[in-house]
Design a binder for these strands. Structure first.
Lengths: 226, 226
DNA sequence: ACAACAATGCTGTCAACGTCTACTTGCTGC
DNA sequence: GCAGCAAGTAGACGTTGACAGCATTGTTGT
């Protein structure tokens, strides 16, 4: 492995040797931490190794993160921001059909979960320092995308009326659960798309307004669990 | 706190002082570990402290658990066994009505998740040593209860036909997701029952056989998200 | 220009941990 | 009674998170 290339900013003083001040240690630490997190998990994430990888002394990170938990909190916050952005992109990028939009959003969530399982776990760890007002806020912003999806569905008549938060939670839980099943190894990655499809389909059927039941009733029976 | 009372078996040699051999170290370690896990989380679980609490030297646990991960694996396995038992009790103990049975089973799962959040996380960590054939087996046995629930529903005509594993996964995911939302602090404990109710209700509606739709359509609109 | 000051990074230290190795104790079958 | 084995003890090593004190740098007021 390429021993984590120098992460110092290009504009920094680079004459003789490495400058006393890194220039953007906080950013560099977060970036490296996210990489290590993805590749080796939370357990393997060490402040000292991080410092080594970035090229500063073992005490330096302390200026930017009071303790290990603070680093993890920051990672979680960044994760929520990215998750929210990806969900929004998926929702906005999908076509007109409501089911397609729901499916796209759910798939984006599960994709995030599979690619950054450890990060997602961190985000939902609940063990964040009490001062994590900021974290709660970005988390809420990510959830807002799902809320918007629900409201769209209600406006278009695909979902029955009712408190969007309430029905949104059910959808949220289902998607999050699928993610957990995948990262936990209960279902294989190849089965994910089918599972998401099933779940969305059934969710829509379960939230149909009283009258309409014209569309899809073709949830085929085919084994795809291990 | 009462400094973790002596966990040595009653029959053991208890003359002068503590005997050289504990007698049932493995069991004692697991019991103490489960307690610590529940009260302080995985991160705080230390082999050395465990040994101290049980009254043996810091090297002793090694005879029973090759390393820390082996201990965690054993905890996860015990957890699956208990979870399976509780799910079965809930399913068998509920009445005749299918929805009531489903609700009871789901509630039991979520109760387990809230009371032993760290343990559940461990069970689904997926980072278990490759040799965890036994663990996969007990996990499957726990899942089998949900499968049986599904099959009952299909026999009784409450659920449409189809591969039970496939529809079971959706239910499993939903429940697991609710658990994750609770332990992650996204929903409060007071809202759990309502959320489980909603989820089950919608799941049933989403899996109804084509004809029947007589029962509950009364998913009231009431805010219960934060 | 320069002194004061706040940021930021470095070094050294400490207790705790997981793991390893070598030794000791107690039991059991011969 | 003793060989052999399982279970526990004791000490060591390397790593980690946390902390304190000092060094260096950039900025700001005069």
């Amino acid at each position: 492995m390429a021993e984590t290339a120098d992460t110092r900013p290009p504009g920094a003083v680079t004459r003789g040797e490495r400058p006393y001040h890194h220039g953007s240690l906080r950013t560099a630490l977060l970036a490296q931490a996210e990489r290590t997190l993805r590749e080796r998990g939370v357990q393997e994430l060490s402040l000292r190794e991080l410092a080594r990888a970035v090229g500063v002394s073992h005490g330096a990170p302390r200026r930017h993160f009071a303790d290990r938990q603070a680093l993890l909190d920051a990672l979680a916050q960044a994760g929520f921001e990215r998750l929210g952005a990806e969900l929004r992109a998926a929702l906005d990028g999908a076509g007109e059909d409501f089911q397609a939009r729901a499916q796209a959003t759910a798939s984006a969530y599960v994709r995030f979960a599979t690619q950054d399982a450890a990060l997602l776990e961190l985000m939902f760890a609940g063990k964040h320092g009490e001062h994590s007002q900021a974290l709660a806020e970005v988390a809420h912003r990510a959830f807002a995308v799902l809320l918007e999806l629900i409201e769209q569905g209600q406006r278009e008549g695909a979902l029955e009326a009712g408190d969007p938060e309430r029905v949104g939670l059910v959808l949220f839980a289902t998607i999050q659960g699928i993610a957990a099943l995948v990262t936990g190894g209960i279902v294989e990655v190849e089965q994910v798309d089918a599972l998401v499809g099933d779940a969305i389909e059934r969710f829509l059927r379960g939230c149909e307004p009283a009258g309409a039941s014209a569309r899809g009733r073709q949830v085929a029976a085919g084994g795809h669990a291990r």
